[in-house]
Design a protein around this nucleic acid. Structure first.
Ligand SMILES: Nc1ncnc2c1ncn2[C@@H]1O[C@H](COP(=O)(O)OP(=O)(O)OP(=O)(O)O)[C@@H](O)[C@H]1O
Length: 749
DNA sequence: CACCACGCCGTTTTT
DNA sequence: CGGCGTGGTG
């Protein structure tokens, strides 16, 4: 490349930036902090700075490592980098912290004395291990308690606290189960190591420990990546902070960007001090503030600023926009959550007339809000995509199959074994599993497939022994295929056939319409995509790749779809139209935060939500909302009072399509039957179809019945007694409905 | 050991 | 509401 081209690059890159951004981009060496408000171009600056370092400073692109928080942000950054820096941008490393940690561990597994194909345990694997450990302790523990142990252990790791150094760093008095917590942590680590597994928190903490223990590894990484850029630095936890300190400590070419007003992961151990103290950590740090917001209209920005000013201990910031005026944001109130969803849909519809679907987002505080919204979008035939929530990979059929994959790749993975051993049911129940696990210790046969094959050593007899031998054969055959690098699509089919999983799923789909095979098909797509994109595709690599994914990617679908996600998931993104649903007290801010007496993080979350919007912002609330089976009244979010006067239009008394609001609860309490003709009944004492005095004794599970409104069905069960006794009926339309027996017009047929 | 019906119970955010 | 553990039955 000649000088003229270099100047072109320089001009081109700088021309896209304002003055402080240019200054940041040209600060190539040494520590640099960009601390700035929402939409001020922090991410844009990171990307242009990378392009500048590559094209103007002539640093090889593979020397640059950029770290983001979510996969979505990483993908976004990669594609924007390609746009800005050209194809060479793909040589930069752009990853999440977790993906970077995994990358390090996989390539340095020998330091852990692990094989390259170690397993990654998700939350449920973790809890399963902990429940197994707790069985050996006196007392009974429930799921909430397993989760407490799992969360505490993860929190320890986020602080780089090990079972050994725990007493030096942790005041156990502040914890539940403090008499056994440390021991459980230690046993958990031992069990995980025996399974050749790492958990999520390990992906950050283990690299830190390895850096300290093996200086040559650290040096290699410092040589490999002399330039570091960290996005959303305000949300780093201690382990992530240390990771960054390690890799950047020698060359100090470290650029961190963030916004203390957008710190929303305190509950996960993130500490905003990491960004506030950057100047102390690096005495010669350059600090740059960006003050112009290029994203939002003035009114949107004023709302965000007005609310966030209610927080204390902020770094003072000015933020202005030249997008004067703009549409006034509106708050809509619906009678209940169902109608709120309908209103959201009508707002989306309206916005779709001049805005592409990909520029519209519906944001909410909790994942459970997504269901009604999804149903409403589905009904309205609007393309949408839900990000986060219950992951594809959390589905039963997918976990079943992946457990097989894991056990085939890593024969010592106890979590995978625990699932595979009796999925589908093959006559090896809890008792037999216990025998196998005991025999495993006695026989010192660590590989589960070998153990299952050894009928004389695995402690089993009779039917269970035969079933185990058969499973071992299947696993061996499959392992051979995996090692021979069979096509992954065929491999999946083979597995489904051989193990009988296909049969079980197909049967369930036929009888219950559970759609499992459809999801299995999605898994096949995922395998084939991976295989197409990867030159050295292996099952082990696939498993590690997908362990970090929460939402399956589908770029084509994304372009034409409205986005539904939690506010947390929307961090770093932007949309023309943003609808924030559930703007209610006890929901946003969440009541648990309020209970704990500090809603400042909720306020920051609201600030993040509002500042995602470029041009249009709507808030919606429901006057009552279904909660644990019952409707509850809700009040408007207290954040309403923090929005400066005149910036938000409040619309009350709205109803769908301009008609009167539907009577509340219509769909839950069936109408008292009109004067229907008395119908003959085979059931004694069931005088008339309009007699509301049904008695519980008359019906029992399995009875075929006729309902005056819903037609024929079958009684599933009766619940409770007396006047409030309820009856559950599965109707021929496939829907289950519940009624209060007393008021229900039913007869046995 | 597998299956199913019953009843209990919980409220958040994620890599 | 909906998810999950459990206890009874075949
Ligand atoms: N100098 C500029 N000229 C034109 N547009 C800009 C400029 N700087 C930023 N933008 C645009 O403003 C919007 C916000 O930028 P960006 O996403 O980088 O902000 P951010 O500070 O990372 O935001 P947040 O903290 O909210 O995630 C983007 O659409 C970006 O392209």
């Amino acid at each position: 490349m000649n000088f003229a081209t270099m100047t072109d690059w320089k001009d081109q890159i700088l021309s896209k930036l304002n003055e402080p951004q240019q200054q940041a981009v040209q600060t190539v060496r040494g520590p640099l902090l960009i601390l700035a408000g929402a939409g001020s171009g922090k991410t844009r600056t990171i990307i242009h700075r990378m392009a500048y370092i590559i094209h103007v400073e002539k640093v090889p692109a593979h020397y640059l490592a950029a770290v983001t928080f979510t996969n979505k942000a990483a993908a976004e950054m990669r594609s924007r980098l390609l746009n800005t820096a050209g194809p060479i941008g793909s040589e930069c490393t752009v990853r999440t912290f977790h993906s970077l940690g995994l990358y390090l561990l996989r390539r340095n597994a020998q330091y852990l004395e692990y094989p390259e194909n170690f397993s990654i345990w998700d939350d449920s694997d973790q809890q399963q291990a902990i429940s197994a450990i707790l069985e050996k302790f006196p007392g009974k523990f429930n799921k909430t308690q397993y989760r407490y142990f799992a969360n505490s252990i993860s929190a320890f790791k986020d602080k780089l606290v090990t079972p050994q150094n725990l007493p030096d760093h942790i005041d156990l008095d502040e914890y539940e189960f403090n008499d056994i917590l440390q021991e459980v942590y230690q046993l958990y680590e031992a069990r995980k190591t025996a399974s050749f597994a790492v958990d999520f928190a390990d992906l950050i903490s283990l690299p830190c420990h390895l850096f300290e223990k093996f200086p040559e590894l650290l040096t290699r990484w410092q040589n490999r990546y002399p330039f570091w850029l960290i996005d959303e630095y305000q949300d780093t936890n201690f382990a992530q902070y240390k990771f960054v300190q390690h890799v950047a400590s020698r060359d100090k070419n470290l650029c961190v960007v963030g916004d203390d007003d957008q710190a929303i992961y305190g509950w996960r151990g993130a500490d905003v001090k990491n960004i506030l103290d950057f100047g102390t950590d690096f005495k010669d740090a350059t600090v740059i503030k960006l003050e112009e917001n290029y994203r939002s209209t003035k009114v949107i920005l004023d709302i965000a600023n007005g609310v966030i000013e209610n927080n204390y201990e902020r770094m003072a910031k000015h933020l202005f926009t030249s997008r004067e005026g703009g549409e006034t944001p509106v708050l809509f109130t619906a009678a209940d959550d169902v109608q709120e969803a309908a209103k959201v849909v009508s707002l989306v519809r309206q916005s779709l007339t001049d805005t592409p679907a990909s520029e519209i987002a519906v944001l909410y505080r909790t994942n459970s809000q997504s269901r009604l919204l999804e149903e409403a979008m589905l009904n309205a035939k609007i393309n949408y995509r839900v990000y986060g929530g219950l992951s594809f990979f959390a589905r039963k059929e997918i976990k079943d199959i992946l457990a097989y994959f894991k056990l085939i790749v890593n024969g010592k993975d106890e979590a995978a074994f625990a699932r595979v051993i009796n999925t589908p049911p093959r006559g090896i129940g809890d008792k037999s599993v216990e025998k196998i696990l005991t025999a495993r210790i006695d026989s010192r046969i660590g590989d589960f497939t070998d153990l299952l094959a050894q009928g004389d050593q695995n402690g089993l007899s009779g039917k269970a022994r035969d079933a185990a031998a058969k499973l071992a054969e299947q696993l061996k055959a499959l392992r051979k295929k995996a090692e021979a690098r069979a096509d992954l699509g065929f491999f999946l089919d083979e597995l489904l056939e051989m193990t009988g999983l296909a049969k079980v799923y197909e049967e369930e789909d036929r009888l219950l319409g559970s759609g499992r095979m459809e999801y299995v098909g999605e898994l096949r797509n995922s395998l084939l995509n991976y295989q197409r994109q990867t030159s050295q595709a292996t099952l082990g690599d696939y498993l590690q790749q997908i362990s970090l994914i929460t939402t399956t990617e589908d770029h084509e679908a994304e372009k034409a779809s409205v986005s539904l996600m939690t506010v947390h998931n929307a961090k770093g993104l932007e949309f023309e139209t943003v609808i924030i649903a559930g703007f209610e007290k006890d929901l946003f801010p969440h009541f648990l935060a309020e209970r704990d007496g500090d809603i400042s993080e909720e306020r920051r979350l609201f600030y993040v939500a509002v500042t995602r919007a470029k041009s249009r912002l709507y808030l919606t609330q429901a006057e009552r909302r279904m909660r644990q089976g019952f409707y509850e009244q809700s009040k408007t979010s207290p954040f309403l009072n923090e929005i400066p006067h005149g910036l938000l239009r409040v619309e009350k008394g709205y109803s769908v399509g301009g008609s009167a609001p539907k009577p509340f609860k219509q769909s839950f309490i069936p109408r008292a039957p009109a004067a229907a003709k008395p119908t003959a009944s085979s059931s004694p004492g069931f005088g008339s179809g309009i007699n509301p005095q049904n008695k519980g004794g008359k019906f029992s599970s399995g009875d075929k019945i006729l309902h005056s409104n819903f037609g024929k069905g079958r009684v599933l069960r009766l619940e409770g007694d007396g006047d409030s006794q309820r009856i559950h009926i599965l109707f021929d339309d496939g829907k289950t409905r519940k009624f209060i027996l007393k008021f229900t017009d039913l007869k046995i047929i």
